[in-house]
Every structure is written in C-alpha cells, then in structure tokens.
Nucleic acid binder design. Structure first.
Lengths: 111, 111
DNA sequence: TTTATATTTCCACAATTATCGAAATATTGC
DNA sequence: GCAATATTTCGATAATTGTGGAAATATAAA
C-alpha cells in the first residue's frame, strides 16, 4: 500500500457520518445492511448517505451487492486489515509501543 | 476514545503532506526534527508546513519542544497506538481477520 | 541594538467536501 | 404499462480545508 491509497482509505473514515456507517456495518457482519436501513438507523437523508457510501466504496472499505430492490453494503474487513497493517508498519517503525495491545503481545520493558 | 476524537486523529493523517510528515517523524524517533528540517526534507513551504503541523499537534499526534531557536516536532507513538487500538476494537468487531498480521498472531482457520 | 535565523500568523484565494431536496433511475409486483 | 419502493444522480449552496507569499514574532549571536 502506498501513501496515496492510505490517504484515500483514511479520508474515507475520517468523517463522522462515514465512521458511523462503517462501524455500523462492521457490527452488521458479512451480510451487511441495505442502504435504506443504514439511513434509518443513523438518521441520514438518502442522498447524503449515498454520497458517503460512494466514498467508502470507492476507497474499497465497503462492498455492495444488489438483492431484489435493495442494495446491501457490507464492511470489507480485509481492506481495513490492510490499512491497519500499513499504519502499524509505516507509522510506528522502530517503536514497539506503537502496536495494538493484543492479548498475544507481551510488552518488553523500556527505558 | 469516542468517534469524535477518532475522526480528529484520522483527519490529521488523512492528507498526503501530513501523512508524509508523520511518517518522517516516526522514522526520526523520539528526538524528532526541527520544523525547518521537515520543510526542507519534504519540500514544503514553511507556512504550509506550519498549518499541517498545527493540525497534527492539535490532534495530539505530535509533540513539540523548543530548543534554542528551533522547535522540534516528534511523533506521539502512544497517541497512534490508541488510534490503532480504537480501529482494531471498534472497526473490526467480531472479525478475527481484521487484525494486523503480527508475527505473534496465529490465524485460526475460517470457513 | 542590529542582524540573522526559525517559525508562525495573517490574508487572500483556490480547491475540495458536505448537505439535502428534487428529479432521475432501477427493480418489483399488479 | 402503471404504481410502489429503493437508491442514486443532479444541482445549488454552505462549509471546510489547503496553499503560499508577506508580515509578524521569537530566539540568538555579533
């Protein structure tokens, strides 16, 4: 992943409405939610939501699939995974502290 | 960390010049780099850089310390750590796949 | 105090982003 | 085809963000 792509990904979630949308879809799981359901749950007008869904999709953080009259949007966990890997590798170089505190990770002492 | 703060943090690195600055400072280590050095290395006019440094500092991703005539900016690894933790916890819920692929982490098989 | 250096603030302007109603475009069922 | 529903596109507008030269501020050295 290059800086350009990272900025696109980051920009797509660096906005309250879009971060809300993405978090909602992360919770919703692989099957996702129809656009209308997202709009209702978050209280966002359809046209505004559509604008944000486009940004998230364009960045690759969402997938969309048509099902009958509905369009289901779902979080692309792999894309988010790649973003997290980029940030961990490129924005924390040489700093052990700068890693998510996963249970499998044991901190080494530092001066 | 709430959504609001996360958006502030994300916005601060969701821009090419600022992501460049942050990555440079991550490489530079705890002692950081003087503003002028950053401007020279990245070829950014002083006033423009100052604008971006303010955004990063305001988000808490940089620390600044005066030393003689220079102001040294350094990456705040802890803040980035917290952001990564937020993203891992809140934007990947229920999805084991959505975690940085650290060497200490062993993937479980998935369907 | 004067000069030099480092950085920021100010300002004007350009560019991008966000909002949302209305109209347009599907898709489905009658 | 017509009506109903779901979503997107269009268009106008507001708000925010990014850029960089010039001036202001701060620190240091002569």
């Amino acid at each position: 992943m290059d800086n350009r792509l990272a900025v696109t990904l980051l920009s797509s979630i660096a906005q309250e409405a879009r971060l809300d949308v993405f978090r909602l879809l992360v919770q919703a799981g692989r099957q996702g939610l129809a656009a209308g359901a997202i709009a209702t749950k978050l209280g966002i007008p359809g046209s505004t939501l559509s604008f944000h869904l486009k940004a998230l999709s364009h960045a690759g953080l969402l997938t969309a699939r048509q099902e009958s009259r509905f369009i289901y949007y779902a979080a692309n966990y792999e894309a988010m995974n790649r973003l997290l890997a980029f940030l961990t590798e490129n924005c924390c170089t040489g700093e052990q502290a700068c890693r998510p505190d996963l249970d499998c990770y044991t901190k080494s002492e530092e001066g």
